[in-house]
Computed example of a mutant assay.
Amino acid sequence: MTSDVWLPFRADEIDGLPEGLNYRFWNGDQEFPADPAECAFYVVPYMKAPAVSQRPMAEMASVRAVQTLSAGVDHVLPALKSLRPGVQLCNARGVHEASTGELTLALILASLRGIPGFVRGQDKEEWRSGFYPALADKTVLIVGYGSIGAAIEDRLAPFELERVVRVARSARTTERGRVHALTELPALLPDADVVVLSTPLTDATRGLVNADFLARMKDGALLVNVARGPVVDTKALLAELENGRITAALDVTDPEPLPQGHPLWHAPGVLISPHVGGPTSAFMPRAKRLLVAQLNRFSRAEPLKNVVLTTGA
Rank of each mutant, 00 (worst) to 15 (best):
D4W: 12
W6C: 15
A11H: 13
A11N: 06
A11F: 01
I14N: 02
D15Y: 10
G16M: 03
L21I: 12
Y23V: 07
G28M: 12
D29A: 15
E31F: 15
A40V: 02
F41Y: 15
F41D: 04
A58G: 11
E59S: 14
S62M: 04
V63K: 02
K81M: 05
G86H: 08
V87I: 01
N91H: 11
A98L: 15
L103I: 09
A106T: 15
L107G: 00
G117I: 12
Q122V: 14
W127H: 02
W127C: 02
R128Q: 15
S129W: 11
S129C: 11
K138P: 02
L141R: 10
I152D: 09
E162H: 15
R163V: 09
R163T: 15
V164E: 05
A171V: 06
T173F: 09
H180Q: 08
H180Y: 15
T183K: 11
L185V: 15
P186I: 08
P190M: 03
L201V: 11
T202S: 14
T202P: 02
D212R: 11
F213W: 03
A227Y: 06
L238Q: 00
A248T: 06
L250S: 02
P259G: 06
G261C: 10
H262M: 06
G269Y: 04
V270F: 10
P274A: 07
T280R: 09
L291H: 02
Q294D: 05
L295Y: 07
R297E: 09
R297Y: 00
L304N: 06
N306R: 11
